[in-house]
Design a binder for these strands. Structure first.
Lengths: 364, 364
DNA sequence: GCGTTTTGTGACAACGTTGTCCAGACTGCT
DNA sequence: AGCAGTCTGGACAACGTTGTCACAAAACGC
């Protein structure tokens, strides 16, 4: 039978579809969507419901003989405990939620992985979602997770108002904010010192002789972006340098936007000799833009990224450790879940300037 | 109150911890861990339980006045429907599970994001976990997801035997395998033609004059790795070229291992003039190794990666589209969940050779 | 031999929701 | 006024599990 007539999976015009028909075509007579329950197991083993529950949960007080019968019955029926029912009964879910901007972003992916690792160590599962930097979508996701009764939440906020979380937090959902602070709510926060990091990065450029330094970063609505702008301004004014309006270009991380603004400040009336990039997305685009120029322009980027050291010139960065951020946040969360009742705390991680070459280029 | 005395979060010796005490210190009198239920809402609104259910679910048959009273009661109590109970009652969870090797791997992160996006479009949440290439951990994760009664599973297998999934699949858990085929089970599969891709990549090197081509890839236990080895061998033998035993180096993707094997085949008795890298992890390490040499060695890598075009020389790759893979797999999954009953199918995506320079270097 | 503990087991209610079914209060019609 | 039909609302059981409690049988002390 060919699948040509079945509805096409949208968006994969190239894939070749075949029908699989391998080895033993099992004639499993099991009913679809109708799983055995403890009651079924009990009936088959000729024991009471509760006895099955005891065996499944490894509780004491079951004779070896009974246990064997129950186990046999379990495997024969392919029984698996329904955790939904268990959760309903026990009141907690052994799962935590993670909401961040983009799961696929090289900055957030390690963070996510680290949170997962900590969750696993605590026997919890991780449900995660990407907010795509959309406050409404963040809220929608977070509340969906709350409805699932996750035990706790790790949030990289896209929204700047988290009052919608108040009833949830009051009801006992532990919540930790990472990378950016919450709005209008008191909760644990794990942040990076973006201000100091950006200031150090820009000061580094100034120390290498630059007086016209540009900044291209994310939209200032985002806390970290705002802090990095502040860091840039502090470094410039700290060195007694003016900031020409064309040098400061916050906006989306869309490569087109970044490129346009970069070209404007590189070819404008007061051309910059160095650029500071507000995050790894911007840095990557700037690497391309600067490579096309015929004169060297210094570059320091916020966030480290893979192969930064293999580019020419190698890229100097203000590095942060996203995995560490995730570990810290998740650690904090589980400490709360285990009953820590300290007032909400703020943990600030420092950044590290890694000099590789691009940030040490002298002004052209 | 200082937190210095509280248990330290392990592994962040550098972070600075403070206590947060901001704006309005809310004196919320809500009880902890004891959420209002529909019953509570009903009592407060002076209506029946089912009426609340109707309002919450937007069902018809509630007068505007009653609805208003119920809504008021809901917001006043901070009620949120308990989806655990709902799931138990309704029988499906509107969530799917994704198990892959490493959420943070630049190859899998976009795949994961794509699956999430499709899930979201279908109103489902995504629970995911990393198997870390450990078959036991894969099974543990998958079964935990089944116990949560996810509606479907997308799996990048680490194991080569999925008979443990039979009862689950028989019970109606839709399952799609991505990137690698399942073992001993019939199910939908979304694969990439690794064999053809690798053969094309190696043939490309041969076409540029190389006769001593090395292969460094992942452990052959992994299906894709095995296929790529086969592709390498097919290209070599297809061109009538011998394969010196030292030229074929499958193993872990650990940089140390890759570097050691690379150096062996570059400096051995029959030094290779070109290397084919079995995946993006290997390619990245090889870029570093080759950059240290004083002679040019050609390189083609399986998997595209960010900034490959900005290295010197720019890296020629056999590209696949992980996001597309994820979209296809998730699409297939939801088609099943919506009731498609075709026999299991196999969708094979082709690869694309992207020539950038490193694969077109002539033999030294 | 009796009472007393210990051990193994099961009946039953509860977790919070939704589906079914029924009842009362209207409406509009003869 | 009487009747059918519609609209609104609620009582109740069920989903599959676990905690509580009670009860029988076996094991113990005297």
């Amino acid at each position: 039978m060919l699948l040509a007539a079945t509805p096409r999976i949208k968006g994969d015009p190239t894939a070749v579809t075949e029908t699989v028909r391998s080895a033993a075509s099992r004639a499993s007579g099991a009913r679809y969507g109708n799983r055995p329950t403890m009651k079924d197991v009990a009936a088959r083993a000729g024991v009471g419901l509760k006895t099955v529950s005891r065996v499944v949960n490894g509780e004491a007080g079951v004779s070896p003989d009974t246990e064997r019968r129950v186990q046999e019955s379990i495997t024969a029926l392919g029984f698996r405990r329904n955790d939904s029912a268990r959760i309903l009964r026990k009141g907690h879910t052994a799962s935590i939620g993670l909401v961040l901007e983009d799961l696929a972003d090289p900055f957030y992916a390690p963070l996510s992985r680290a949170v997962e690792e900590v969750a696993r160590a605590h026997g919890a599962l991780l449900i995660n979602g990407s907010s795509a930097e959309d406050p409404e979508r963040e809220q929608e996701l977070v509340l969906a997770l709350c409805a699932r009764r996750v035990d706790g939440l790790v949030i990289v906020p896209a929204s700047d108002d988290h009052r919608y979380l108040e009833p949830e937090m009051a009801a006992g959902v532990a919540t930790v904010f990472v990378d950016r602070p919450p709005g209008n709510v008191e909760a644990d926060q794990v942040l990076v010192d973006s201000f100091a990091g950006a200031r150090e990065g820009v000061a580094h450029l100034i120390a290498h002789g630059h007086r016209r330094v540009g900044f291209i970063g994310d939209v200032p609505r985002i806390h970290t972006a705002h802090e990095r702008i502040r860091g840039y301004e502090a470094a410039m004014s700290g060195a007694g340098l003016p900031v020409h309006p064309g040098w400061l270009a916050p906006g989306s991380t869309d490569p087109g936007r970044v490129r346009a603004d970069a070209e404007r400040m590189l070819n404008g009336p007061e051309p910059v000799t160095a650029v500071f990039a507000g995050n790894n997305r911007v840095t990557v685009t700037l690497v391309r833009v600067l490579a096309e120029l015929d004169r060297p322009v210094a570059l320091v980027g916020f966030d480290d990224f893979e192969l930064a050291d293999m580019l020419s010139p190698p890229v100097t960065v203000v590095a942060q450790d996203p995995a560490q951020l995730g570990r810290t946040a998740a650690g904090l969360l589980f400490r709360r879940l285990e009953g820590a009742h300290d007032p909400p705390c703020l943990m600030t991680h420092p950044t590290t300037l890694i000099t590789r070459g691009s940030g040490e280029l002298p002004p052209a």
